[in-house]
Simulated scan of single mutants.
Amino acid sequence: MTAAPSTLTAEELRAELANLFDRAGGPLIITHRGTTLGSFPDNTVRAAIAAQRSGTDVVEVDVIRSLDGVYYLFHNGYEEKHFLSGTDLRTLASAEIDERSFQWQGERGTLRPARLTDLLEALPDTWLNIDRSWFYWPELLDLLTEHGAARRVLLKSPPEAAALAALAAHDTPFLYYPIVTTPEQFAEVRRVEGVNLVGAEVLASTPADPYAEPAAVAALAEEFPLVQVNALNLENGARLYLGHDDEAAILDGPDAGWGPLVRSGATAIQTDWPHLLRDYLVQQGLRTAG
């Protein structure tokens, strides 16, 4: 697929992001793989709808590609969990993927993997953070451009040279932020010309890490609108921001888990519990109830 040349400018897309922040009126809530409760598996259209109705600002999704070039919402490596089969979906043609069915809590095996285009069409106004997808740039960027999604898509990746080169060379100046652990990594990204850089996702697993210091996070936020920290509790047990996370917020109280993230100076928090995080932000006077 070769997309038509984009007429969008970097300034126009940054203005769309500014409008998103204006509507939020406080830290953005980014929901990890959608709201995955009950019969709603992650990385599905129904989970994205649930996140939207739970008060999120942005839905984060992962993307894979079938052997014949069709893009699906899925995080590779979770095939056994979701389908009771270890077969890597990326090794299958789209017709085979379409026959897979989720085996998930209340779900009775009737829900099929969703194509990325299904999500774009089902929620045409919802902001998306497309995470694991950089392996497929620039072809995926062509698809997003063709579907007119650039005004509501945030892209991120590790600061890998190949991904940054593909992004910089593309006609559409997608909003982008890297996943970084040090200011030096971020500085390397800044040196890449042609990237519409709007901030960073910062990680800090120990107090000795550079972004564990709120001043370092605040310095980024003074210059860039989107500085994200994570409240996620991943299956691999990684400490994404000093152990301040959703589990602490749920079990020990929201100020124990989400309070330090808010006070870090970040402007966006990724969570698996958007409705509860939103309630906390409202209680703290950082968001309005509406």
Rank of each mutant, 00 (worst) to 15 (best):
A4N: 08
E11I: 01
E11S: 13
E12N: 01
D22A: 10
R23G: 05
G26R: 06
I30L: 14
T35K: 11
T36P: 08
T36F: 01
A48T: 12
D57V: 05
V59M: 04
E60L: 02
D62H: 06
I64Y: 00
V70T: 09
N76I: 06
K81E: 13
L84A: 13
T87N: 04
R90K: 10
R90M: 12
A93I: 03
F102H: 09
G106P: 00
T110H: 11
L111C: 13
R115I: 14
D118M: 04
L119D: 12
E121V: 03
L128N: 05
S133A: 15
W137P: 00
L141M: 12
R151H: 14
R152E: 10
V153R: 02
A161V: 11
A163Y: 13
T172R: 07
P178D: 02
T181R: 15
T181Q: 14
P183V: 09
E184T: 13
V192L: 06
E193T: 12
L203K: 12
A212S: 15
P214I: 04
A215D: 14
V217M: 06
A221V: 01
L226R: 00
N236I: 06
G243D: 03
I250D: 06
L251V: 13
P254C: 11
G257V: 01
W258N: 06
V262D: 08
V262T: 08
V262A: 04
G265C: 04
Q270R: 12
T271Y: 05
L276W: 10
Q283E: 15
L286M: 12
